[in-house]
Nucleic acid binder design. Structure first.
Length: 121
DNA sequence: GCCGTGACGATTC
DNA sequence: CGAATCGCCACGG
């Protein structure tokens, strides 16, 4: 029932699209830390737009230098093999940053989970 | 302005 | 614990 488009807070103050906002957050992910799609979507005010976030990643411009390898799902699993050109690639990048994996090969979210936050600058 | 899509999420079997 | 299903929201055509 809340179809009121008057919220205005979604559109963000920069009038950038959801994708742009996602890229902005991903760019702010500190080294050795990881975040989840749902967390990013929630930070943007759309807890159910987790898929949309992933979509933004797929369309993420490489020239943005986005550490997309630091974005994993809520289970701590890395993106599908078809994505980064191989799951091992993403895992290597994270491991190189000091990220620890558990016996299941998943990122230890309790240790490396980073709460997405808009650039406070 | 409707339909399809998708690097997800949570629930259920 | 693993696989399957529905739901969700934003973007492109």
């Amino acid at each position: 029932m809340r179809q009121a488009p008057s919220d205005g807070e979604h559109r963000t103050r920069t009038s950038q699209t959801f994708f742009e906002q996602v890229w902005g957050i991903v760019a702010n992910v500190p080294e050795g830390k990881v975040t989840t799609y749902g967390a990013i979507a929630r930070a943007l005010g759309s807890p159910g737009a987790a898929r949309t976030v992933g979509w933004a990643m797929r369309a993420a411009p490489l020239h943005r230098d986005l550490p997309c390898h630091r974005v994993v799902n809520v289970a701590g699993e890395l993106s599908r093999a078809d994505t980064f050109g191989g799951t091992g690639v993403q895992q290597s990048l994270l491991a190189d940053e000091g990220v620890v994996f558990d016996a299941h090969g998943r990122v230890d979210m309790k240790r490396h989970f980073w709460m997405p936050q808009q650039d406070p600058s």
